[in-house]
């Protein structure tokens, strides 16, 4: 099945305002607000998604000098796919001196769902990216489906973060792999947020940081507070 691509591209025009190009896929982008060089976009599901065999693709690009803020209107539930794998690809570009924040809502894997997700981001020098990523294995009372996540983030032409998570039932039952059903992550690339040393915050070797919490209930995640701080810093830096 071919991907239905949701695309958001923000570029600076000659008069200093931001021009936005949008394309609708399984998610529809809507401009919520625009002020100065900042544009805020909401992603709205256009139908029931994620279904078995769906191929959802999101392309976000903040070009030089722009600030793109993306919000999910709601979390996404991956439904039992009857053996068909769903694909979700994110392709993110952050140009020089650009800012991109994606306030992503949780991806919830129902029993029987099989999702393969890939996130690829390229952050140029002096660009800053901030991503939230919450995956929930199982709806209430479920053990949850199977997820693989491949993440590759590049900063200034060098690899910043490379991570493959294999969260099938067998692997995630191994000691030390996951240990609970919610994996909540905030990732900063191209900059390292300020804050006191924290057991949840990992300082990447390059310019970046990852905050992570593994909990049984999403609302117990320690990342909510970290995320607010980091998002404030990201916007304050403009």
């Amino acid at each position: 099945m071919t991907a239905r691509t949701t695309r958001v591209l923000a570029r600076l025009t000659a008069d200093g305002s931001v021009q936005v190009e949008l394309a609708t896929g399984l998610l529809a982008p809507r401009v919520v607000r625009q002020h100065g060089t900042t544009v805020e976009i909401a992603l709205v599901a256009t139908g029931a998604t994620l279904l078995g065999g769906d191929h959802l693709r999101v392309e976000l690009s903040a070009q030089d000098g722009t600030c793109l803020v993306v919000r999910d209107v709601a979390g996404t539930v991956a439904y039992a796919g009857g053996g068909r794998i769903s694909h979700w690809d994110n392709e993110i570009q952050v140009g020089p001196s650009a800012r991109l924040v994606w306030h992503a809502e949780p991806l919830v894997l129902s029993d029987g769902a099989q999702v393969h997700r890939e996130t690829h981001a390229d952050v140029a020098g002096h660009g800053r990216l901030l991503l939230r990523d919450t995956v929930v294995l199982g709806r209430a009372g479920q053990a949850g489906g199977e997820l693989t996540c491949r993440t590759r983030i590049w900063h200034d032409g060098r690899p910043l973060l490379a991570e493959d998570l294999v969260l099938d039932r067998h692997t995630r039952a191994l000691p030390g792999v996951l240990g609970a059903r919610v994996l909540d992550t905030a990732t900063a690339a191209g900059w390292r947020p300020e804050g006191p040393p924290d057991a949840t915050v990992l300082h990447l070797a390059g310019e970046g940081a990852m905050a992570r919490s593994i909990v049984d209930e999403a609302h117990h995640s320690e990342i909510h507070a970290v995320w607010r701080q980091w998002a404030d810093q990201q916007c304050a830096s403009l």
């Binding site: 030390g176 792999v177 609970a180 057991a199 990992l202 992570r212 593994i214």
Partner: peptide
């Protein structure tokens, strides 16, 4: 270098991260 496996165990990483303190 791009082909080096990147398989992660997030829980174990957090355990080891905490060992610094």
């Amino acid at each position: 270098p791009d082909d080096i496996p990147a398989a992660a165990a997030p829980e174990m990483e957090l355990w080891q991260h905490a060992h610094g303190n």
